[in-house]
């Protein structure tokens, strides 16, 4: 069955932990590398999962990053515990950022997170409310 889930990798992502930021997406990347995923696909997933992870670190109260493997697609899912994206359309604009100055001083929060996720995925769903944001990015194989 092409559409049955073969494997799910799940990682906890802590809010505001910039030391650990990038570790979950790195782990996803090395798992996919050991599976033998094509390098072009891998690079897109690397960017998507890194940006999604950073979004949880910078903007949320913490959450989870999943990477689901299907025979015909890979899905990156990020789920956080809020506070939600106020204006999703605005957040999709390149350069628009709500990151604080202290975050920007660390070199993050350039307003390219969601636009990059959209650019590199074949399909993107965003559901956001004050209790949490769920992002589902699909990459077809």
């Amino acid at each position: 069955m092409a559409d049955s889930l073969l494997k799910r990798y799940t990682y906890d992502v802590m809010a505001n932990d910039f030391m650990a930021a990038g570790k979950s997406s790195s782990a996803i990347k090395s798992n996919l590398k050991s599976l033998g995923i094509d390098s072009d696909i891998l690079r897109r997933i690397a960017i998507i999962s890194y940006e999604a992870e950073l979004n949880i670190v910078i903007h949320s109260f913490g959450g989870k990053l999943h990477c689901d493997i299907y025979e015909n697609k890979i899905v990156i899912i990020s789920e956080d515990a809020g506070p939600g994206i106020e204006d999703v359309d605005l957040a999709m604009k390149e350069g628009y950022s709500t990151a604080s100055d202290s975050v920007r001083e660390l070199g993050f929060g350039a307003g390219m997170g969601l636009p990059n996720i959209k650019k590199y995925s074949d399909h993107l769903e965003i559901n956001s409310s004050s209790t949490g944001t769920k992002i589902v990015a699909t990459i077809n194989l």
Binding site: L6, K7, N31, S34, L35, G36, I37, D38, I69, Y70, E71, L141
Partner: peptide
């Protein structure tokens, strides 16, 4: 080029 990847087998191997 590597042959077509069988993801199911690759996942089983990894597990």
């Amino acid at each position: 080029r590597p042959g077509k990847l069988n993801l199911k087998e690759a996942v089983e191997r990894q597990e």
